[in-house]
């Protein structure tokens, strides 16, 4: 499957770039691209940022997820404390990152 030029991947790896995540996701949507966002490792702390829920709602269930293992490693409860805006189906593995690489014609790391 060829990467879709209308999908825009944001792979979030560090815990300090929420303004960039939100800014880029909004700009991508404005440009007619579907943002697809994955939060891994320390970046899962950004799920506690008050801007996270709106970001999740804008992306939609299929296009935003977090690494469940990272969330658990950092001390959160991945069963009883699903981040606001997400469902348990969006508590995923690194395979979601693989899907970003395969599906998205645009890609940036934060």
């Amino acid at each position: 499957m060829a990467a879709d030029p209308n999908k825009f991947a944001i792979f979030v790896t560090s815990s300090q770039n929420m303004r960039h995540v939100v800014g880029i996701a909004n700009a991508a949507e404005k440009a007619g691209k579907q943002p697809m966002v994955f939060f891994t490792y320390k970046s899962i702390h950004l799920t506690k940022d008050p801007r996270f829920k709106a970001l999740a709602e804008m992306c939609g269930e299929e296009n935003i997820a977090i690494c469940a293992d990272s969330y658990t490693c950092e001390g959160y409860d991945s069963a009883a404390d699903i981040p606001a805006g997400l469902s348990n189906k969006q508590m995923r593995t690194q395979a979601f990152h693989g899907a970003q690489l395969e599906e998205c014609g645009n890609y940036i790391v934060l």
Binding site: P5, A31, I108
Partner: peptide, 26 residues
């Protein structure tokens, strides 16, 4: 450069779309 006070995200997205490859350094 993202390490500025008010990055122009619209411009950044346009540049990513125009590029074949993007590297976002730490």
């Amino acid at each position: 450069y993202l390490n500025v006070e008010n990055p122009d995200y619209d411009l950044l997205v346009a540049k990513v779309i125009a590029a074949d490859k993007t590297v976002s350094w730490w």
